[in-house]
């Protein structure tokens, strides 16, 4: 037999029991992972933090829930940063190499240039897609109007105004 307390209805507006638990676990896990990485691979973390700055900025300034700009900039930014991360790991993964990379103008230009390209993609693609959709819609309207013209040609004007036919009857 269940205990009386367990039979009490959940309060209106209260979040499900699993919700807050999942929301609180992810940042915790992330914090633990970052903490472990700082402890065991400080140089990598440093490189990623400075290399991925455009992505972090994009994530912060994109107020939409889907965060497409962050994905767009982030994707390109990763492409720019990952070769240097690999170089860091291949050369001992120490702070000196990380400092060397971060002070190399060319390396910074590659990382930030890649993220800039990401921004350009993010800004250029939506208008192109919009224009494409408009053309498609216009083509559909033209097709429908042709269909209507054919119907009138085959069935007469009454097909466009059936009420006049009913009135005549």
């Amino acid at each position: 037999m269940a205990k009386p307390a367990s039979r009490q209805p959940r309060r209106k507006g209260a979040a499900p029991a699993a919700g807050p638990r999942r929301a609180s676990v992810a940042p915790l896990l992330l914090s633990i992972a970052v903490g472990l990485m700082v402890v065991f691979s400080f140089a990598t973390v440093l490189l990623l933090i400075f290399g991925m700055l455009p992505t972090i900025v994009a994530f912060i300034i994109d107020r939409t829930p889907s965060k497409y700009s962050a994905y767009c900039v982030g994707g390109m930014n990763v492409s720019g940063v990952f070769p240097y991360v690999l170089e860091l790991w291949n050369t001992g993964n120490n702070f000196a190499v990380a400092k060397h990379i971060l002070t190399d103008v060319f390396a910074l230009a590659v990382m930030y240039g890649a993220s800039g390209f990401g921004w350009m993609v993010y800004l250029a693609v939506p208008p192109v897609v919009g224009a494409f959709l408009t053309v498609m819609a216009q083509r559909r309207v033209a097709l429908l109007r042709t269909t209507q013209r054919n119907l009138i040609e085959e069935w007469g004007e009454d097909v466009a105004n059936p009420m006049s036919e009913l009135r005549r009857k």
Binding site: Y71, V129, L133
Partner: peptide, 14 residues
């Protein structure tokens, strides 16, 4: 169109 463009851009980037 804008939303789909953004999606396309994000997908392309990833």
């Amino acid at each position: 169109g804008e939303r789909q463009g953004q999606q396309a851009a994000a997908m392309t980037s990833v």
